[in-house]
Amino acid sequence: MTELSNTYIVSDEQRRFYDENGYLVIKGLLDFATLYNYKQRFLQICKGTVDKGNITVVKEISLKDKGVTGENLINKLQEIHYDDVFMTYTEHPRVLEVVSQFIGQDLRVMNSMFINKPPGSVSHPPHQDLYYFPFRPVEKIIAAWTAIDDVTIENGCLYVIPKSHKQGILYPHAILTGASRLYHGVQHAAPEDARVHLEMSPGDTVFFHPLLVHGSGANVSKRHRKCVTAHYASERCAYVSVRGTVQEHIAREVEAEAGRRGFELSFEDTWKIKSKSITLPSKL
């Protein structure tokens, strides 16, 4: 097996596609061995054979009352970017190489997740990632999402609304029927006929703009749909107040969630605390 170079240069054509459509899929960005390590780490945490540290384990609400356990109940792991194994994704040279070409060299990883999506998982409503972020400017924020398993429409692949970022609008979001807590969505900005479904193979990685409307379908297959994802922002981004904006609702929910865990934190402070400055690998 040929070892992948740490370097990946985004072509002019790829850059134009991203600027025009708000997303870019790069085939085979990560190798099988790397993906296998992430899957094994996830299973270790599911079984409790390693300390999960500060990782938050999120169960699939729709399956809680059906008697499923372990891997078949866990929807995702959140805040994985301090874990010794998962940080090799959030700080992977090939991922950072692409991210830095879009938003610059000075980077913070703001959010990270290993998403499992077991059979029976519900859909993730159409939304914009910026809705959850109290920092700007938008052009200095980007997401990376890498398939670990084959990702298909049947097992709930991502879908995007191409060019939806170009309006420059952050839409009002609301709690939609059947969605999990903190999963807000936009009602009318993602018509079925405008959705492009991103079926992907292991190692394929999509990068997307924080205003891009996107979501994912329900997993109606008998297979899990595993992926790993992270959001990055430039160190030059600044925190902004979201009071009186369409983000105020989610801000209050996040603050209430922190309160339930015994912390008095503002929406902005939650992001300051959990984010992590990262250093690009030296090219010497």
Rank of each mutant, 00 (worst) to 15 (best):
H197C: 08
H197K: 11
H197R: 03
L198Q: 02
L198W: 06
L198M: 12
L198D: 03
E199G: 04
E199F: 01
E199W: 02
M200Y: 02
S201W: 00
S201T: 07
S201N: 11
S201K: 15
P202N: 14
P202V: 09
P202M: 11
G203M: 15
G203E: 14
D204C: 06
D204G: 07
T205S: 11
T205P: 06
T205E: 12
V206P: 00
F207Q: 01
F208H: 10
F208S: 05
F208A: 04
F208D: 01
F208M: 13
H209P: 05
H209S: 13
P210M: 14
P210E: 11
P210T: 12
P210Q: 14
L211G: 01
L211E: 00
L212Q: 03
L212V: 08
L212R: 01
L212P: 03
V213W: 08
V213N: 06
V213P: 03
H214D: 14
H214C: 12
G215C: 11
G215L: 12
G215F: 05
S216Q: 02
S216C: 07
G217Y: 03
G217V: 00
N219R: 06
N219A: 09
N219P: 09
V220K: 12
V220P: 00
V220G: 04
V220R: 13
S221L: 11
K222H: 12
K222S: 12
K222E: 15
K222A: 10
H224T: 12
H224S: 09
H224E: 05
H224G: 03
H224W: 06
H224M: 13
R225Q: 02
R225E: 02
R225T: 00
R225W: 06
R225Y: 02
R225M: 02
R225A: 05
K226C: 11
K226N: 07
K226R: 15
K226S: 07
C227G: 14
C227A: 15
C227R: 04
